[in-house]
Design a protein around this nucleic acid. Sequence first.
DNA 1: CTGCATCCTACATGATACTG
DNA 2: CAGTATCATGTAGGATGCAG
Lengths: 120, 120
Amino acid sequence: MYKINGKEYNCSISITSEIFNDKWKLGIIWYLLDGEMRYKEISEKLNEITQKTLTVKLRELEEKGLIKREVFPEVPPKVVYSLTPIGEKLRDVLNTMHSWGIEYTKEFGEIVGESCSPKL
Amino acid sequence: MYKINGKEYNCSISITSEIFNDKWKLGIIWYLLDGEMRYKEISEKLNEITQKTLTVKLRELEEKGLIKREVFPEVPPKVVYSLTPIGEKLRDVLNTMHSWGIEYTKEFGEIVGESCSPKL
DNA sequence: CTGCATCCTACATGATACTG
DNA sequence: CAGTATCATGTAGGATGCAG
């Protein structure tokens, strides 16, 4: 049994699953594995996310302790996001998901042209 | 670029992410990694899922090619679910998620009593 | 550039009752 | 036992506009 903020989970899979049970968080982490990024860079990588949703998701990830937010007091503003140590530890998780996605595509779809690379 | 059923993905992570972007599928796969199970057994393991949702999720997993559904023409009916080869390949993914969940709990929560085990 | 404030809609999930 | 059928609802996410 696992307990986080008073909430109970019977399996650690539930924890990981709950955190990433949305459309965007995994993608954000995926790109941050390459290194810190500014708000705008992230929004360009995930080029279909709305500003509102991106902000919400970044706040959630920050609150969960997975990313760090640094504000530079400049004009125009500059905000840089990066992974925390526990966020960084998602590298293995994301890479296995990446590999599996490729396997799945080989079986049911097709790989066309350039593809994303694992974050080694 | 990846293409499945006419839908395009710029990264294989999007594929994996999309498939498991819900509350229950990962849990279903997790338990099926121990071996085939009947409908009722699954619903007992995931003891808060409603029948309707379980049926929907099983159909989706079947349609995606991750599980196999076998109907035995008996009275009362018997239906057994099991992982397909590509579903079975999720073992690594789930295990890394499992490990990470434990790491996360160590940092932000606490482990109390019995816990689930990796599916080796 | 990096947001926040509103409004809005679709969809995932739940509650409940019923069936071959 | 293994579902279907209805009905209800919360919320994630999108669209748009404004701001320091």
